[in-house]
């Protein structure tokens, strides 16, 4: 039980929180089952990595470029597949994310199997600048603390931004689309354009999450961005609560406490069995939560209408 361990859990919770804000916007508030979020994240993270390493960009300029590219990808995916039925849209987006992942693995521009490395010097400089400052309050020994602080500042800021957006007329139209698409269209709203904006904004959030993933693992490699990332995002979304941004934060913290905390269970089992047990516990937990509290911890039962 060390502080380092829990700081790491906090970093993961923050990154997945930012990632899942986008899913909440799509699934929770627009009724779009976007399963390609990991693909947008990969595009954001790789853009940053490639621009810094191959083109010599500053990390801080590369981040907005990564967001822009992810947004463009979101628009592209949206234009191509938003007219599909919602379950088909889910499958099309997951296929898109997998194509992105296999392209990154096989193409030359992305470093292929050897990945992208050495883009984080500027972040380390910031981190090294923060550590002495943290040392003055007795926290200098925790090297991951700067990342934790920055990730959570970003997460909270983005969470408040999303909450604010939801209260605008734009946010209300999105909710209308989720509740009844045809009625919203009948009111003269361009449903397609709104859905497209929702998807593009989610892609931008994914890119920000991807940026932090890159800083955390210091090595960009395609398998980091496999569909499991998106599945975990949906798991913590449902856990925290459907159509609730606060629920994303709570869900992410709880989910990662559970997933990583189960590492600390002491048994006399073999390492393989212990590892299996961890995921059995997570599986049982997911089954229980969806049975006992289907709307999630902070969710509202009345908000739970997503068309199949």
């Amino acid at each position: 039980m060390s502080i380092d361990f829990w700081i790491n859990v906090g970093v993961l919770a923050g990154i997945y929180g930012i990632f899942t804000l986008g899913l909440q916007l799509n699934a929770g508030f627009t009724g779009l089952l976007n399963f390609g979020q990991a693909g947008f994240m990969a595009i954001g993270a790789y853009t940053v990595g490639i621009l810094v390493v191959d083109r010599g960009w500053s990390l801080w300029l590369a981040l907005p470029a990564g967001i822009v590219l992810a947004v463009l990808a979101g628009l592209f995916v949206g234009i191509a597949s938003l007219r599909l039925r919602s379950d088909h849209f889910a499958i099309a987006t997951i296929a898109f994310a997998e194509i992105v992942r296999y392209t990154l693995q096989n193409a030359a521009f992305s470093g292929g199997n050897q990945g992208v490395l050495g883009f984080d010097a500027e972040w380390r400089a910031v981190s090294d600048w923060m550590l002495p400052w943290l040392a003055t309050i007795g926290l200098g020994a925790y090297t991951q603390l700067p990342l934790f602080i920055v990730v959570w500042l970003a997460f909270v800021a983005l969470l408040l931004m999303m909450k604010g957006l939801q209260a605008t007329p734009w946010g209300r139209v999105l909710r209308g689309i989720r509740e009844d698409e045809d009625a919203t269209a009948a009111l003269g709203k361009d449903v397609f354009a709104y859905k497209l904006q929702s998807l593009a904004l989610a892609a931008a959030l994914a890119a920000v999450a991807g940026f932090f993933v890159a800083l955390n693992v210091t090595y960009l490699y395609p398998t980091v961005f496999d569909p499991t990332f998106t599945f975990f995002g949906y798991a913590l979304l449902v856990l925290g609560g459907f159509a609730s941004y606060g629920g994303v934060a709570l869900g992410s913290v709880l989910f990662w406490t559970l997933l990583e905390g189960t590492r600390l269970i002491e048994t006399s089992l073999s390492a393989g069995q212990q590892a299996s047990l961890r995921f059995i516990i997570v599986g049982v937990f997911l089954l229980l939560i969806s049975r006992l509290r289907p709307q999630g911890l902070l969710g509202n039962v009345n908000e739970m209408r997503v068309r199949p």
Binding site: Y234, V238, S276, I280, F285, L287
Partner: peptide, 25 residues
């Protein structure tokens, strides 16, 4: 309980984990 599609999806992921890792256990 009239669970929504996301709840069903989450349960399926949970069940998959339980099955796969029980086998592996």
């Amino acid at each position: 309980a009239k669970a929504g599609s996301l709840q069903l999806f989450l349960s399926a992921i949970g069940l998959g984990l339980v099955l796969r890792f029980t086998v592996q256990f």
